[in-house]
Design a binder for these strands. Structure first.
Lengths: 192, 192
DNA sequence: TATGCACGCAAGTACATACTTGCATCGATG
DNA sequence: CATCGATGCAAGTATGTACTTGCGTGCATA
């Protein structure tokens, strides 16, 4: 692996493990097995390094998320959504701290660089397409698919991310929460 | 106002305006119209100061939120929830940065100090009680009121907080989003 | 072999910031 | 009036951290 990549990976690793204040240039260099000077030679300054690292991390995560939707779009909406949620939950678990960092990155960063909206847009778009298909098939009421996507995304987002970060709910609790909310949501959109 | 309070208010103000990195002890002292030494004499060190300030801020915010539920519990659920949401949205707007700071405070802070879960518990509890009443009245299906509370809270949370912080949606968009999601939710819980 | 490039190493600079110390001042209260 | 507690003020310490400089070394390629 080339030096840039080693440094970037070390940065992501440190951000993930110790948060934004743990990622000093010294630690990054040491974690990457590289001299601190090299970090500056490669990335000029810390700001650029962090930007590059976050972008790399976000793109890796986006690629992983894309695979969430590589499952059969069965007409049993509940099964489909629960499957996606469970898979997403696992992936989020692995990257939870990086996601947290991305949530913290808001101030002073231009919108096109923000990692989080990118991710949420990707997911909402996939979901909206799925709901559109179900509407066409007559399974789901004639509602705005974007609204449905946003609604279920809100629920999933809250239960997984927020639940993991703030409440540390055990897995069963989160699964039950998810099922309960999903039922309410499905009652709301399915034709009877 | 006594010195402690002046310092605490200045801290909250600075956290709100400039974020966690903007709140240096020098700035805090200057904003409070007090000598920097006094800050340390009163609060021993910065960690304790921040803890005290966040607690004060959170309690103020909690008090404000309590008033959200001081409205008539009309049986028109949509009107009731939309009213609460609009009022909450205004209050959140005023404190958006402080809320953001509270969201950032996670690492290394024991759970009982966390501001955010306090707030979410308060709101969910009120909502659950409200839904319980509606179930007793036969307006709402016989569902778990806690699940309903969590579900609608997730939606409201995402659309307001996340929407304000990350996406900067205009007010109309957020209102439309809220209405759309609310309709889906209501279809899910109301008896037909 | 010679040149250049990537990198290590040691040392240092600049700066911000938390926190301390010693002394002076002033106002309230016994 | 005398004392004491709260505060200001000036100066300083300690530390962490981004970033720089100068030099040496080894490796690959012309």
């Amino acid at each position: 692996m080339n030096t840039e990549d080693k440094i970037l990976d070390a940065t992501i690793e440190l951000l993930d493990n110790e948060g934004i204040n743990g990622a000093t240039t010294r630690k990054i260099a040491s974690e990457a097995g590289v001299n601190e000077v090299t970090v500056f030679r490669k990335f000029k300054n810390k700001k650029r390094l962090l930007r590059a690292a976050k972008e790399r991390g976000a793109n890796q995560f986006l690629e992983e998320l894309e695979t969430l939707f590589d499952i059969d779009e069965v007409d049993d909406v509940e099964t489909y959504l629960m499957t996606i949620w469970k898979n997403a939950s696992k992936k989020i678990d692995k990257r939870i701290n990086l996601i947290r960092i991305s949530m913290e990155e808001v101030r002073g960063i231009p919108i096109e660089d923000k990692v989080f909206p990118k991710i949420s847009r990707l997911i909402k778009q996939h979901l909206a397409e799925y709901f559109q298909k179900l509407i066409d098939k007559g399974i789901v009421k004639d509602i705005d698919p974007d609204a449905a996507a946003m609604t279920i995304f809100s629920i999933v987002f809250h239960i997984t991310i927020y639940g993991k970060i703030y409440e540390h709910y055990p897995e069963e609790t989160m699964e039950k929460n998810m099922e309960d909310s999903l039922k309410i949501f499905l009652h709301g959109i399915l034709k009877t």
